[in-house]
Amino acid sequence: MKLKIKTFGITRDILGGRLVEIEISQPTVSLLRSELTRRYPDLENLNSLFVAVNNKYADESEELSSTDEIALIPPVSGG
């Protein structure tokens, strides 16, 4: 299944784009996380990395579909 991943902050530099496509079969948040860190090892250096699905922070076991809005949320730095 093809997933579209929105990137923000430092994850945009690491993944190299605003919207990155990743192909995973029977994807969950946890599987997406392992696939992303396999492809982009620099993600492991972040203090935190949340995955948001349809505008809510997702649990690791949550199943993903190709129509979900998926976003990577690295440590925030507003203000």
Binding site: G9, I10, I73, V76, S77, G78, G79
Partner: peptide
């Protein structure tokens, strides 16, 4: 402001 800085999904 403290909560906005640590929780709001904003990046600089």
């Amino acid at each position: 402001i403290d909560e906005v800085k640590t929780k709001a999904q904003i990046w600089k």
